[in-house]
Write a protein that binds this DNA or RNA. Structure first.
Lengths: 182, 182
DNA sequence: CGCGTTCGGCTAACGGTGTTAGCCGATGGT
DNA sequence: ACCATCGGCTAACACCGTTAGCCGAACGCG
């Protein structure tokens, strides 16, 4: 993947703004060009195709998410709970970007190496084992998309489901004497 | 939602075949018409728009899924395990239909009333409580889409994650004396 | 029988999409 | 002073969903 020039970064930034404020159907080459006071074909002087634009948005999204997750888990008394809060907050703040990041196979070849692992690391540390991390990730992602798509009734039960799932995947206390409060 | 005539049912059936065999990008009005030896505009004599076609595929998918889930759970020794097996089998057999069923808000207004609840019922029975059902559904759906999109490494750990999640959401044994084997 | 309606095809066309080809003025290096 | 590169531009293509309007065949019915 070619490195993006400064004009390309501008294009990606306005593309992300369009996506976040008006959703994926509005994310059109002509629309992006309009926003920049430019014609659509000129975009191709900076970006090879629309997919590369979407990939760049996804990469930015992962970078931002990774930062938030690391900051949330760092030194938290309840790392899993903190991670889940940060995860939900990210998805709620950038639902269209979140969907773009998750609703298709990852463009791994066009992503900085290590970024995927970096994003996954805080959860891994929060729950202990890799298989538990994958299960917990699946739960959190599942809840998130079901909520984004309004598949779950908006009653208190959904919040209970969050609690139930978090409790199910929280690592057991480190061994010794005092039990944890709940 | 208008009831679909017999020709419309044929159209939906070939649309589903195209979707299942070649994916959503191939699901084109012209492509469907071709398959039927017909021109694209003629489809609109039977179906109001493409979205209605997709909705019909989704409804068929839910009906088939509901049947499979009911059959799987019915009288099973481990209802949750049986449900998960049936769920994964359905998604693996019809990945594109599964995505269509889950990757967008449900077209509830154009679905037979009760179908959504019927599809959800087997899992609800299998785990006991509604909040546990939602959490378990999120986990199963999350694992499924992550696997469909090849987001999880294809090692044994993912299978462990399935086991871990299932164990986490299995209802406690009914009370009395003898412990279950594992 | 004849008539009118409805049905289910058709062609032509519109506006929108991503994308390519090719032109051209400005900028900047040698 | 020249030439190349950069970053715009217009025109156009193929494909998409969809609409308008035509037309032959089939059918109900007086």
């Amino acid at each position: 993947m070619r490195e993006l020039g400064p004009r390309a970064r501008e294009i990606v930034a306005t593309a992300r703004e369009v996506l976040e404020s008006e959703g994926p159907r509005a994310l059109t080459m002509r629309r992006i060009a309009d926003e920049l006071g430019i014609r659509a074909p000129s975009l191709y002087k900076h970006v090879p195709h629309k997919t590369a634009l979407e990939t760049a948005i996804v990469v930015d999204g992962f970078q931002e998410a990774a930062q938030r997750f690391e900051a949330a888990v760092d030194g938290a008394a309840d790392p899993l709970g903190a991670f889940v809060d940060a995860y939900r907050a990210f998805a709620a703040a950038h639902p269209h970007v979140y969907r773009l990041m998750t609703q298709r196979p990852l463009p791994r070849d066009d992503m900085p190496p290590g970024l995927e692992a970096r994003t996954a690391a805080p959860l891994l540390r929060a729950v202990g084992s890799p298989q538990r991390a994958r299960a917990a990730w699946a739960f959190v992602h599942g809840m998130t998309v079901l909520e984004l798509d309004a598949r779950l009734p908006d009653d208190g039960v959904t919040e209970d489901a969050w609690r139930e799932g978090i409790a199910a995947f929280r690592p057991p206390p480190p061994a010794a004497g005092r039990p944890e409060e709940h």
